[in-house]
């Protein structure tokens, strides 16, 4: 990532975020409003991810986890859930077509951006799977906790 991209992201952050959040909320059944806790967490996390992108030391793992933690327990399939990480590329393209700064973004920079989001999608997949596995782990742990005394007696 270079300074040109960082500058571009900074000046268009609000527009990108708004569109990205809209895409994320459109995943939900019908009426996930901006003021819901889900929207607030998503909004904060997506912003962190975006802010981190232009920087060289980009660690957005925590924000990524916040997003996938919500996605992993929803009523839609993984393919749909993780599709939100493919959206920024389209959003970027749309915005670049409309802004004058676009002229300053070289093909190389755009490719860097796209490739970063491809990596992010794969990282999101890992994170999503960790949360799915956690759900199964919770089921097992809950079963043991419920039978705590019975298990203790068998062990004794």
């Amino acid at each position: 990532m270079n300074t040109v991209l960082a500058k571009f992201l900074e000046s268009n952050k609000k527009a990108i975020l708004q569109q990205w959040l809209d895409c994320a909320l459109a995943l939900f059944p019908e009426k996930m409003g901006y003021s819901t806790p889900v929207a607030m967490v998503l909004s904060g996390a997506l912003e962190k991810i975006l802010s981190g992108l232009g920087k060289s030391e980009n660690d957005c793992q925590e924000a990524l986890d916040d997003v996938t933690r919500i996605l992993a327990v929803q009523n839609f399939p993984p393919s749909k859930a993780l599709s939100i990480f493919l959206e920024p590329k389209l959003i970027l393209r749309d915005i670049m077509m409309k802004t004058t700064v676009a002229g300053t973004l070289t093909q190389e920079v755009q490719e860097a951006f796209n490739s970063r989001f491809d990596r992010l999608t794969l990282e999101a997949f890992d994170s999503y799977m960790r949360h799915r596995e956690k759900i199964y782990q919770l089921k097992v742990e809950e079963g043991s906790r419920r039978m705590y005394m019975a298990l203790r007696r068998t062990e004794a």
Binding site: P29, E30, P77, S79, K80, L82, S83, D118, T121
Partner: peptide, 17 residues
């Protein structure tokens, strides 16, 4: 990685309010 076209297809085809 799922193709964007497939994802869009699923989203487009599945009805939503």
């Amino acid at each position: 990685v799922p193709k964007l076209s497939d994802l869009k297809k699923e989203f487009d085809e599945k009805p939503s309010v």
